[in-house]
Structure formats: C-alpha cells, structure tokens
Simulated assay, not measured.
Amino acid sequence: MTFNRPTYTLEEALKKAENYCAYQERCHQEVRQKLIEMRMIPEAIDHILGHLIAEGYLNEGRFTEQFVLGKFRHKGWGKNRLRQELKQRDISGLAIDRALREIDLEEYQATFHQWVEKLWRQSTGKPQANRLQKLKDGLRYRGWEPEWIYEALGDKMKS
C-alpha cells in the first residue's frame, strides 16, 4: 500500500518550515519531526534547521521562555512539570533553568495556593483522607514541589 504524500524541493520545504515556525514558537525537535514527516533527507533537514536558526525563526531560549510562561499561566503547571516537559523536547538544562527563573516568585506562590484551594473545593463532601489524596495527586500531576505539597496537606489537616 503506497501513500500519495507530496514530495518537496529544498526551497519548498524551507518555505513551509519558515511558515511553520512563524505561526508559533517551535522547538528544534518539533521542526525536525515535521521535516521527517515531509520525507526530507537528513542533509536537507540539517540545512533547513541551520537556516531557521540563522534567520531567527528558531530560537531555543525564546521557545523555552514562552513555553514556561504559557504553561504556567494557562495550565497552572509547577516547575517540576515544566522541567520534565522541556526535557522531553530535548531542551538544554541551561535554557530550562534560565526560563524557570523568569517566573515571578509571588505569582508562582499565588498560583500554587489557587490550585490548592481549587482542588480542595472540588473534593468537598468526601472523607478527609480522600480529599487529601486528591489534593496531593492533583498538585503532583501539575508538577508542584513536594515540600510545598506536604506543607499544604499539613495545613488542610489542621483545618
């Protein structure tokens, strides 16, 4: 069974990759995967990636910063989840650390406490042990620091 997928010249693939990166920030891995799906040969992929980097279409630091702030503000992810997701995208540790430092500590703490209250309210009416487990699981899933989670659990056990 053969698939009728289009083939691309180097110039066509380059233009398509530029548009792909111009639409939203991308990491190197996403662009490489897109080019593989376009059935480009490794030499062409390297050439296109080099061009995208040189022309400013692809920037790991910029991608990492936008990813961190976007996922933190819109999905409420903690630093552990953010780090894990970026590592899966082959982002360097230095870029990850730099982006995580951009999160305002007061905003980070406020977001954590909002999640604690939201998750706690969602489990109203259940036994306290179940509520505490749901709170712990929800916060861990979102990647919040274990010491913060246990402090929140302690506070909820007292109230």
Rank of each mutant, 00 (worst) to 15 (best):
L14P: 00
R5M: 01
E117Y: 06
E106A: 14
R5W: 00
H28K: 03
R73M: 02
D90K: 11
D46Q: 14
E65C: 02
I41L: 10
L69P: 01
K118T: 10
M40I: 05
G78S: 10
A99K: 03
Q66I: 08
R26N: 02
R98V: 09
F72W: 06
N130M: 12
E55C: 01
G143R: 04
K71W: 10
F63C: 04
I48T: 02
Q114V: 01
R39Y: 07
T111Q: 10
E43G: 11
L100V: 13
S92F: 13
A95L: 09
F112G: 00
R26T: 02
C21K: 14
G76W: 14
D90C: 09
C27D: 08
A99L: 08
K134S: 07
D46I: 07
E55R: 05
Q24L: 07
E18L: 14
H47F: 09
Q109G: 13
E117T: 10
R101T: 14
L132V: 10
E102I: 15
W115Q: 04
I103H: 09
H113Q: 09
E65K: 07
L52D: 01
F67G: 10
R26F: 02
E65M: 05
T64L: 02
R26G: 00
H51W: 06
V68M: 11
R39T: 08
Y8I: 01
H47I: 06
R89V: 05
R101P: 10
K71D: 07
Q29D: 08
R73G: 01
G61S: 11
I41N: 07
L58P: 04
L10D: 00
P127M: 12
H51E: 09
T7W: 00
I41D: 07
I96D: 03
L119T: 05
S92N: 12
V68N: 09
E43N: 13
Q128Y: 12
N59S: 08
T9S: 09
P6C: 00
L58F: 07
G143F: 04
K118R: 14
A13F: 03
F112P: 00
E25A: 07
Q128K: 15
E85T: 01
I48K: 03
A17Y: 12
Y108C: 11
E117K: 11
K87M: 06
L10H: 03
Y20G: 15
A95N: 13
Y8V: 02
W120H: 09
R39D: 07
G70M: 08
P146A: 15
K34P: 00
